[in-house]
């Protein structure tokens, strides 16, 4: 692929990414601003059951948020503002949404990164070992771990870790943001389901590849089992796992909502949790769009990595 082709491909992919972001914005607009009968009523916690809110105050709010204008105008206004990074102000705190997200994002990204760094070697190691071993019992044991991992509720794993490691054994701090030691348990909690999912997909891929005829060719050359496993089997099994990794990173970022709540840490997750509870619509929309940006970037990186791992894949299509 020439440099020119590469540039053209990147340009096309960036245009696609923009389209996806637009779709994310539009979908969240539809869900958040159109689905509820009256956003203002929700945001003020009012309605029949809530405290009586001054009708004049509601009207003022409605005007401030632009809900008194036609839908199309509202949509275009919000889209134009969003393009400038303006998602409005938080209903509960009055702080600009983007500023709020910016305070939480670094901590959550660090946590997500740590979790990926734990999940990838753990998941890959588990899958490689499970498919390499010739002891059926060990294989069954190793393969049962991922199915357990995906079935455990994340919040509960976090609490059990806290209970055992922090309270019983007093090895690590229980909560808060103090120092790297406080990062360990949240990162582990977050990594468990991700590692499990990766291990499941990779193990399935490895088992499929093991049946491929070229593996027999490699054995027929007299290559050792470990060599065959690492040089012939594994490289052919990574593609589905890589695709999954792209999805998992987004999941991890969202799961931070749960994990940060469990460990009482500050971050985008906590901000989201609070905003959802308070039905703070502008903040939730901001979170959706920012998450979409991260997901789109990760997927772009994953797509760029495919041809490096499989020469049959050409950027922008598949060779015959």
């Amino acid at each position: 692929m020439t440099r020119r082709d590469m540039a053209r491909y990147l340009a096309r992919r960036l245009a696609q990414a923009a389209l996806v972001l637009w779709a994310a914005f539009t979908l969240s607009f539809i869900v958040l601003y159109l689905l509820p009968g009256d956003p203002i009523e929700i945001m003020t916690g009012g309605g029949a059951s809530g405290d009586a809110v001054d009708p004049a105050q509601i009207a003022a709010l409605r005007h401030e948020y632009g809900f008194d204008r036609p839908l199309a105008v509202q949509y275009l206004d919000r889209l134009a503002a969003a393009l400038h990074g303006d998602f409005g102000r938080s209903v509960t705190s009055g702080v600009p949404v983007l500023g709020l997200i910016r305070t939480g994002l670094p901590a959550t990204l660090t946590l997500t990164g740590l979790a990926v760094a734990l999940a990838v070697p753990a998941g890959a190691g588990l899958a490689l070992l499970a498919t390499y071993t010739r002891t059926p019992r060990l294989r069954r044991l190793l393969l049962s771990l991922p199915s357990l991992g995906v079935a455990l509720p994340t919040f509960w794993v976090g609490l059990v870790l806290l209970q055992v490691v922090s309270f019983r054994l007093r090895l690590l701090p229980s909560a808060g943001d103090a120092g790297p030691a406080a990062q360990v348990l949240p990162a582990v909690t977050l990594a468990v389901p991700a590692a499990a999912a990766l291990a499941q997909v990779l193990a399935r891929g490895l088992d499929n590849v093991l049946r491929d005829p070229y593996v027999e060719t490699a054995h027929a050359k007299g290559a050792g089992r470990l060599r065959v496993h690492l040089r012939h089997v594994a490289p052919n099994a990574v593609i589905p796992a890589l695709t999954l990794l792209g999805l998992v990173i987004g999941e991890l970022m969202t799961n931070a909502v749960v994990v940060e709540t469990v460990f009482s840490r500050d971050g985008l997750g906590r901000i989201t949790a609070t905003a959802v509870g308070a039905e703070d619509i502008p903040v939730v929309q901001g979170v959706v769009v920012v998450s979409a940006v991260v997901i789109v970037l990760v997927n772009l990186l994953v797509d760029l990595a495919y041809p490096l791992l499989d020469p049959r894949i050409v950027l922008g299509g598949r060779a015959s």
Binding site: G250, E251, M253
Partner: peptide, 15 residues
């Protein structure tokens, strides 16, 4: 591409 938990959270906000 959108994590299902994020989708659920968005829907909960609206509903």
């Amino acid at each position: 591409a959108v994590p299902s938990l994020l989708l659920s959270l968005t829907l909960v906000t609206a509903l």
